[in-house]
Design a protein around this nucleic acid. Sequence first.
DNA 1: CCAGAAAGTTAGTCAAATCTAACAATCATA
DNA 2: TATGATTGTTAGATTTGACTAACTTTCTGG
Lengths: 184, 184
Amino acid sequence: MVKETEETRVQQTASMEDYLKAIALLGRKEARATVTNISKLLKVKKPSVTSALAKLSGMGLVVHKRYGSVDLTPDGFKAAQDVYHRHRILCYLLADILKVDPKIAKDDACRMEHALSPSSLERLDQFIRFTRNCPHGTPDCLEGFNYYLKHGSRSKDIMFRCRAAEQSNRESTNGVKARKESRR
Amino acid sequence: MVKETEETRVQQTASMEDYLKAIALLGRKEARATVTNISKLLKVKKPSVTSALAKLSGMGLVVHKRYGSVDLTPDGFKAAQDVYHRHRILCYLLADILKVDPKIAKDDACRMEHALSPSSLERLDQFIRFTRNCPHGTPDCLEGFNYYLKHGSRSKDIMFRCRAAEQSNRESTNGVKARKESRR
DNA sequence: CCAGAAAGTTAGTCAAATCTAACAATCATA
DNA sequence: TATGATTGTTAGATTTGACTAACTTTCTGG
């Protein structure tokens, strides 16, 4: 018997993930998910959309009536949510924690979201939750970092609260990974 | 007159960046950068390497003597350094700060490195430097985060040092970016 | 030195994802 | 309700980056 939380999640290509995300986004606004709208949003030509929809239909992720409506199946919806979650998490890290310009943060997130593994996503999510659920507001670390960003050095005031603790600092990972396996 | 720091850096594709990184890596070891070695490292077949080298030659990033040596030009070296820097920064974030399994961290970094803009890289770099140059060791925030990761909740002890401070928390960025412009 | 092994290349194929041009369906309104 | 505009599709070309099969060059040990 198979676990019910079965993650049979077939890996989408970056392109297909973008289409799913766009469809989900348009679907929940006044703007309907149509070939033309998707085309405009992703800045691709309409035939590219038609062809992508055919592929996504084949994978059972959308239902596309010829000359008609475009809808996500439950699987498609889940997949889209998944991409969008990765997107939001990356965006938050970049824009809100690291103070990258929001537009650039969004663009980067749009590209990186296709490359984030579940494990990394999970940890990033935890980290963000950690920085947000401090009962007194901005945790020291972020406050300190914001100061550091602005002035180029640490605030003496914030700094002295820093504890002594050793950090094992391994220099590992030679930095190259097979192209083949790094595809999604 | 043009600025001398002219960043005429032509955007490489992810694939080309991988080749550059591999060549740089092999170049500075006992293992020479040869077609066969690059092929093994990136897990692609040799004809793919030959063809990539032809392209990189055309771009003036490597010098490849037929049946012979493979060397980075100064530009190629710079480009390779650049990719590798992005790689190390992402790896550090994932593995050392977020405590993602090193192998997974490396794989993720290998994919995300192609999508990180200079601005985000810069901020990430600053953040990491910030977490490392604390004169007393691990800054509170990381110490606190490590505790949080292990126990699922904050350490009361660490927490009370957290300052009150308001955080303006905008929910922005609708999360879709044109595919076209998100290519490199 | 020369024969087989190893390394590298060439030529041609394939798949993914885009594009353009031309056609077909639907809509909107006069 | 006809007709022009909008929307969507089909067919076919292009690009990128991989692959296989077959060939050529270089190296190496007897």
